[in-house]
């Protein structure tokens, strides 16, 4: 498993903590994450908070448009680890 796959597994786990019913195995990694999983702004903030705690990578508000999908989010974290 490469680093990005490990990151995807981690982010998936963190999403499931917030949205236990999310069907992660059905999620297209390039689709809009929040749209697909019905995450509201509070959920998304909680997700970024747990990502910051787990990985140390802080996504500022100005970069929200760069982390729309699971793929782009994990790429974003990967580059900054």
């Amino acid at each position: 498993m490469n680093n990005n796959e490990t990151l995807k597994a981690l982010v998936s786990k963190l999403i499931l903590d917030i949205a236990p019913e999310a069907e992660m195995h059905n999620l297209d990694p390039n689709e809009d994450l929040r749209e697909e999983l019905d995450l509201d702004s509070m959920d998304f903030m909680n997700l970024l908070d747990s990502i910051a705690k787990e990985t140390g990578v802080n996504v500022p508000e100005s970069d929200y448009s760069l982390v729309n999908s699971l793929q782009s989010l994990t790429d974003y974290i990967d580059k900054r680890l």
């Binding site: 903030m45 910051a52 802080n58």
Partner: peptide, 17 residues
């Protein structure tokens, strides 16, 4: 909000709500 949140970690940010 943009100015206020700029340097804050996610759990300290204020949402428009």
């Amino acid at each position: 909000l943009r100015e206020h949140n700029a340097d804050l970690p996610p759990n300290k940010r204020i949402l428009i709500n």
